[in-house]
Computed example of a mutant assay.
Amino acid sequence: MPRLLDVSNDVRAEIGDDEADRLLAGDHTPGSYDCTSCRTPGDSAQERTSTVLFVGDETAVLAFAHAGCLPSQVVQVAEDQLQGAVRSVAGSPEPVGGGEPPVGGTQAVLGVTSGLLLIAGELHPTLVIEPTGPIARPGAQPGGGDDFLPLLIEQGFMPVTELTEAPHALPGWSVLLAMGQLHAVLQPGTGGTPSQVAWWQAHQPLQVTDGWRAAANKTHTVLVCAAPAGSIGRQPREDLLRDALDKAAANGRLVAAAMPLAGT
């Protein structure tokens, strides 16, 4: 039976025309599925459904999502993250993990904290990103300083001196929520690449609270704040996280951007 399936040009290019046509004809497409984003049931025979292709170094996984949750797209992910996603689909629990920095030449880990920030009377779902150590530019000599914030500013993040209004949107970027968990922060592809690539990606899918997800679904936007190593720290409560962000902003050690939410 033909399916109400969206297969983007990027997905078609990866899987080939023959496989794409078979999917559209319903040969290899399940009628019912669990949405890879919101994890609620879907039916490709009754409602618009997106094909989402997760591609790692050696593995590719084709998933299905409500068209209203995710557009059909190719998502480049680390091989270990993709294997973790496969285990998550199978029902195996996954611990919260960090991610590797996509900028700079230093192999530091990026710590990511999710929280709700009250700005101008509205709760904003927020991700706070802080490396475990200094981030240097590619090719820089060791001990040359921390270029994390300058690199992000060059990418379009804006310096923040006080959290009195939400930051501007960063075109082409988005926050990917798949299978009900945080998977990546995506940026535009480079060198003519049409699809987005991961700027930050979780080693293991990152859990977010129901309140955070509800706020994100309401605004369809996530605030991403970033600060150099040692600026924020691991804060056990959202009020303490806010205090640390306010202090970092006042000291000129905070950048931020707003990004659309991909998924629910």
Results as ranks from 00 to 15, higher is better:
M1G: 12
R3W: 00
L5P: 01
S8M: 07
S8G: 11
V11E: 08
A13H: 09
E14K: 07
I15G: 03
I15K: 03
D18Q: 13
E19K: 14
A20V: 10
L23P: 04
P30H: 12
Y33W: 12
Y33C: 03
C35W: 03
T40C: 02
P41V: 12
G42E: 02
D43N: 15
Q46E: 14
E47P: 00
R48S: 13
R48C: 02
T49D: 08
T49H: 12
V52N: 10
V52C: 11
L53T: 08
F54I: 10
G56L: 05
G56V: 06
D57I: 06
L62W: 02
F64I: 02
A65L: 13
H66G: 11
G68S: 13
G68F: 07
C69E: 02
L70D: 03
Q73T: 10
V74M: 05
V77P: 01
A78W: 12
D80N: 13
L82W: 09
L82K: 06
Q83T: 06
G84F: 01
G84S: 14
G84C: 12
A85P: 00
V86Y: 05
S88P: 00
V89Q: 14
A90L: 15
S92E: 15
G97R: 01
P101F: 04
P102N: 12
S114L: 07
L116M: 14
E122Q: 14
E122G: 05
T126C: 15
T126R: 06
L127I: 09
V128E: 00
V128Q: 03
I129L: 15
P134R: 07
P138F: 10
A140C: 05
G143K: 08
G144R: 02
G144F: 01
L152C: 08
L152F: 08
Q155C: 10
G156Y: 00
G156P: 01
G156F: 00
E162R: 15
L163S: 11
T164L: 11
W173N: 01
W173E: 03
S174W: 01
L176G: 06
H183C: 09
G189H: 10
P194W: 09
S195G: 10
Q196M: 11
Q196P: 00
Q196C: 09
W199I: 03
Q201S: 15
Q201V: 05
A202W: 05
A202D: 05
Q204K: 06
P205H: 04
L206S: 07
V208A: 11
V208P: 05
T209R: 11
D210V: 10
N217Q: 15
H220F: 05
V222R: 06
V224F: 03
C225K: 00
A229R: 02
S231K: 06
I232D: 01
Q235N: 14
E238T: 13
D239N: 10
R242A: 14
R242P: 04
L245P: 03
L245Y: 07
D246W: 04
A249H: 03
R253M: 14
L254I: 09
V255P: 00
A256S: 13
A258M: 07
A258D: 07
A258R: 13
G263S: 10
